[in-house]
């Protein structure tokens, strides 16, 4: 689904060059749930934005869905969920979910059908006519996920979607996200800075470290596909979490 080879990205700023990513080699296969974890400045969001063609790499190569990121964007082959819901306050939930469908020129009947389906996937039936500011933060983020699902792209890119939510809501949304992933068979790339979240959700965990941003470890999860929230207390879960923590520590220099 996504293939990066020797990928690098350097931002030119007034204070000199900032190496956001260097020598990233990574494969995301179809149907995988891949988490990117690391401290801030490690380039995890930048990598997601490169996949989405919101940033241009300065070296190496990357293909998304077999094409360049620019073509993948033009083909509308991914949905992107941002850190904040970024819903348009002048549109109600239904019309927010309809936004990508309007831009992409779907017919009215098809739109109605897709809005209904994607709102059902995130359990927001009955809130179609509400405006974003009438909903809680968790519900707003669910609506933004529904919006990303509406046009049924195979790849879902999620940039710390639950970062601003409290832990109870986040647990709930995590288990809903797993169900959604199982139901839709999508490929998900998920940026987070929470170890339990990464381990709980992923089939593959990419550990990254900053200065320069790079991949330090790629962990294939051995957890079963069926994951109740209690799985987070099993020794297997803790072992993976431990390895992630070790990876983060190895990449982190303490001399600052």
């Amino acid at each position: 689904m996504v293939e990066a080879k020797g990928l690098g990205l350097t931002f030119k700023t007034a204070d000199g060059d900032v190496i956001a990513l260097t020598d990233v080699n990574l494969d995301i296969r179809k149907g995988e749930f891949v988490s990117f974890i690391g401290p801030s400045g490690c380039g995890k969001t930048t990598f997601l934005r490169v996949i989405a063609d919101l940033e241009q790499p300065t070296s190496g190569s990357i293909t998304v869905n077999g094409t360049s990121p620019a073509d993948a964007r033009a083909n509308r082959s991914y949905g992107y969920v941002f850190q904040a819901p970024a819903l348009f306050p002048w549109r109600n939930i239904e019309r927010n979910v309809a936004l990508p469908l309007e831009i992409m020129g779907y017919g009215a009947a098809d739109r109605k059908d897709r809005i209904e389906k994607s709102l059902a996937l995130v359990n927001l039936e009955g809130f179609e006519k509400k405006f974003p500011w009438q909903l809680s933060g968790g519900m707003q983020q669910r609506a933004s996920i529904a919006r990303a699902l509406a046009f049924d792209a195979d790849l879902l890119l999620m940039d710390e979607p639950f970062g601003a939510l409290d832990e109870i809501v986040r647990d709930h949304l995590n288990s809903e996200l797993l169900k959604l992933w199982a139901a839709t068979q999508k490929t998900i790339a998920f940026v987070t800075h929470s170890i339990p979240e990464a381990v709980y959700l992923s089939t593959k965990i990419v550990v990254m470290s900053p200065r320069p941003g790079r991949v330090t470890d790629v962990i294939e999860s051995t957890l079963p596909a069926e994951r109740p929230l209690e799985i987070r207390e099993t020794p297997e879960f803790l072992a993976i979490a431990h390895r992630v923590r070790e990876g983060l520590r190895a990449g982190h220099s303490y001399d600052e």
Binding site: L54, R73, G79, F82, Q83, A86, F88, I103
Partner: peptide, 14 residues
């Protein structure tokens, strides 16, 4: 309009 909203429209190839 915010940065994020513009990026969102970009991801739709709007």
């Amino acid at each position: 309009a915010g940065r994020m909203e513009r990026d969102l429209m970009r991801t739709y190839a709007s």
